[in-house]
């Protein structure tokens, strides 16, 4: 049987990939996809610990994480569409000025 450490490593790798993507990609949509990737890492992590401690609480957290992810996706994507309408681009750098 596989131990929790391995899951944690995989979860951390997913999280780090998401972080790298969020920081390095300039497309707003890909940035948000990267945050979803980080969510996946967290979910794996939380469930792995839930397994370790023989608790279901971790899974409950994971479920709440899903809810948060859904909320974030809904609002963020709505905002993205709005921003895209204003600037005509998805480049995050287009919003580097405070005006407009």
């Amino acid at each position: 049987m596989t131990g929790v450490g391995e899951y944690v490593v995989v979860g951390a790798i997913l999280f780090a990939l998401g972080l790298v993507g969020f920081l390095s990609r300039r497309n707003l949509i890909v940035m948000f996809l990267s945050t979803e990737l980080m969510f996946q890492g967290v979910v794996v992590n939380v469930v792995a610990f839930s397994r370790l401690h023989e608790h279901v609480d971790g899974q409950a957290f994971a479920l709440f994480l899903l809810a948060i992810a859904a909320v974030e996706a809904g609002l963020a994507l709505g905002l993205l569409v709005l921003l895209y309408r204003i600037r005509g681009t998805l480049d995050a750098d287009a919003w580097s000025t405070m005006s407009g």
Binding site: L19, F22, L23, R26, M31, A92, D93, W95, S96, T97, M98
Partner: peptide, 13 residues
């Protein structure tokens, strides 16, 4: 301080 939020996020991360 160029206003690019990603730079700030980078430093933070």
């Amino acid at each position: 301080q160029q206003g690019a939020i990603q730079s700030y996020a980078m430093a933070m991360a």
